[in-house]
Design a protein around this nucleic acid. Structure first.
Lengths: 342, 342
DNA sequence: CTGAAAGCGCTTACAG
DNA sequence: CTGAAAGCGCTTACAG
């Protein structure tokens, strides 16, 4: 917003409405130009009450002539809503965020909401400035839902299942997706299948691991604890490091299911460095279908999420909340993308 | 922000200040609890005027007890500034944005500004809602700088040199960096060096191309037009497509300089598919040092930008503008990262 | 150092 | 269908 020139307070007579076209005219200027009250201008702007057609036209002409746009601060101060939705993205570079956000935007826009993004710093609470500014939030991050003084900011978790409380969420079924990935490996004849997972304070990591365990159990296969490797983080390097030990086992696995593509690629690099071929010597399946999954050689077999739709549904759930509803969680379908790595 | 319950207008008597701890108390409630005027509360909150130590303590206690936080809309409406900075990121998934934004945040935060992100849709103008909301913008996108009714929103271009007008910017010297990349190839004995560039409505693309041409000219080498390939976009696929023809030339190049890592990797894939080895048969150098440059095999030789510092300097330039200054453009040093591809 | 009061630019009962 | 006026929650000359 512009800085106002320091104007002397003017209490004697009201200032004449400024009609400088293109400057930030006020609603009073529009009203004066159209020969109506500010109330009427407000009503045509917001279509909140019927206005005589001819009057409306005069107002619209005045708005156009002055290039008037409402001051969002004044509007929000009186109306009690900002029509702004906060989308929280994780601080790690997430190749998905852009597409998910597009999905969000596709539905918010046609409902008169704009979106604003914030990067979550770690998993701490959100910068306090945001929640006073927006009507609700869609979080793609592992952020704490803030309890701002007893009041709850409407909140939707996108792609990160919230078990805590009744926060609505939209997600794929991570456990089932992991089962599908492991089942695929089983179908190809693998029996010694290792799990490459990440530190499990993420719900998705726990669920993907559970999927692995369930699939193995259903196949009547024991899970050798030595086959379960927990990476320190989710970087390529973490994947390489955690996968390294697998090869020196007395009975090394013939396949690895990694809970993230980054880990999977790190593992492949480690295997190669050790002289193993992928998938001939050891098959690798990832999770996420990051852009790199297609470009990397060998192309990575992995699980894909419906990104745009995840964003769109998250927006729907939030809008439903803003309208006073209690939306149900939504589970969206995933897909196994078969390439060359496994 | 919360929806207010529909309260009947109350004109007879002022409502008693609500002291419900944790609810959104107003400044009046704080004033009442501390036994001072709202003006005094405002003064301690903003440290805008000296306040008696004992009074200040009472106010601070009241603020703490009520969990008071100023309503940002009311504050902005009166003060004329939002203390919000808009960072515009490109709509293509940009692996850099997170790190640049961290740089921005590191300096805005300690100056009392918060940041808000927006994704630029193509190269159209920004959604009008943003510029009324924020005090200034840092754009990492190829967005048009909007001229909102004659008034200019303070603006800094980050990593995209603006030749237009006097918009301050921070960037590396793309032309020099490209020269360095090509010179590296020349030093390794290459003479037939092709250029893989992108459609040139981007300043950086033009400048990198100019660097290529200058380096070749200085080496006394002609640029064969057949060696200059313009990719349709900057995807991997675009790189593969544009690079493909190079191999069937009567005298194919021995090296390629690509103006983006994504193009470089696409080219490498195309070369491999055609049975060529990189770098033995053909060397490839990219630009950007995307995360993948390190992970891809072969590791990509490329130019790295100082991301965090780019963001930090952009923030400094914007703050300088907000303080009424006219900051000079800033050029930051780049680095050639030598890996295996060239 | 402190307070009473105007004013920022809107929206919305209330009364015609 | 329309207007006068209060009120949203702050900040800031102005006057002590």
């Amino acid at each position: 917003m512009p800085r106002k020139p320091p104007s002397p307070s003017n209490r004697a007579s009201p200032p004449p409405p400024q009609e400088a076209p293109g400057s930030n005219a006020s609603i009073a200027a529009v009203a004066a130009l159209a020969g109506v009250s500010t109330a009427t201008v407000s009503r045509v702007l917001n279509q909140s009450k019927p206005v005589n057609a001819e009057t409306r036209e005069r107002v619209e002409a005045a708005v156009a002539q002055l290039g008037y746009r409402a001051n969002p601060f004044a509007r929000s101060l009186t109306s009690g809503e900002s029509r702004l939705i906060l989308v929280v993205v994780p601080d790690v570079a997430n190749p998905f965020f852009a597409e998910i956000v597009q999905g969000v935007e596709s539905v918010t826009r046609r409902n008169g909401y704009s979106i604003v993004l914030a990067i979550a710093a770690g998993d701490g609470p959100l910068d306090a400035v945001y929640d006073r500014l927006t009507d609700g939030v869609i979080s793609m991050a592992h952020t704490q839902r803030p309890r701002t003084g007893g009041r709850d900011l409407p909140w939707v978790a996108c792609s990160e299942v919230m078990t805590e409380g009744s926060t609505p969420y939209v997600s794929i079924d991570h456990r089932q997706a992991a089962m599908d990935a492991v089942q695929y490996l089983l179908n190809r004849g693998h029996r010694r299948i290792a799990l490459l997972t990440a530190e499990e304070d993420y719900a998705w990591a726990r669920q993907r691991r559970a999927g692995y365990e369930t699939a193995m159990a259903r196949a009547g296969l024991p899970v050798d604890p030595a086959y379960v490797r927990v990476a320190r983080g989710t970087d390529y390097g973490d994947g390489s490091e955690a996968a390294g030990g697998l090869l020196t086992l007395p009975e090394p696995p013939t396949a690895v299911f990694a809970v993230a593509d980054t880990l999977a690629i790190g593992a492949i690099k480690a295997f190669r460095r050790a002289g193993r071929r992928v998938p001939e010597d050891i098959a690798v399946v990832g999770f996420d279908n990051v852009p790199l999954a297609q470009v990397f050689e060998p192309g990575l077999t992995t699980i894909a999420q419906p990104l745009r739709e995840l964003g769109a549904v998250a927006a729907e759930l939030l809008l439903e909340q803003l309208a006073g509803g209690k939306p149900e969680p939504r589970i969206l379908p995933h897909a196994l993308v078969v390439r060359d790595s496994g």
